[in-house]
């Protein structure tokens, strides 16, 4: 079920314009510390590549964005 939901959520984020790589699930056993470190490091690297989240800019409306685009 989680696998199905994750596949759906990644697509949903993509649909609304958030990069699907920003969501990640990895199954790691409590004894597999190396795999855990690896998964987290890989995720952090990917986040650095993608840069700050667009959500950081808040939910306030800014029609200026599209107006500026149209003017280009």
């Amino acid at each position: 079920m989680t696998q199905k939901r994750m596949a759906f959520l990644k697509e949903l984020l993509n649909f609304i314009g958030i990069h699907p790589d920003r969501l990640n699930v990895t199954w790691v056993s409590s004894s597999e510390s190396a795999q855990f470190a690896e998964a987290v490091t890989a995720f952090v690297h990917r986040m650095r590549e993608l840069g700050p989240s667009p959500l950081k800019r808040g939910m306030t409306s800014s029609p200026a964005y599209f107006l500026a685009k149209e003017g280009q």
Binding site: F15, I16, H19, P54, M59, T60, S61, S62, Y65
Partner: peptide, 20 residues
């Protein structure tokens, strides 16, 4: 058409809709 916009434009588009 949100489908055809790029990722950032799509986000802006939905963000503005949901800001209402």
């Amino acid at each position: 058409e949100p489908d055809v916009l790029n990722l950032e434009d799509r986000f802006q588009r939905w963000k503005e809709e949901f800001a209402k």
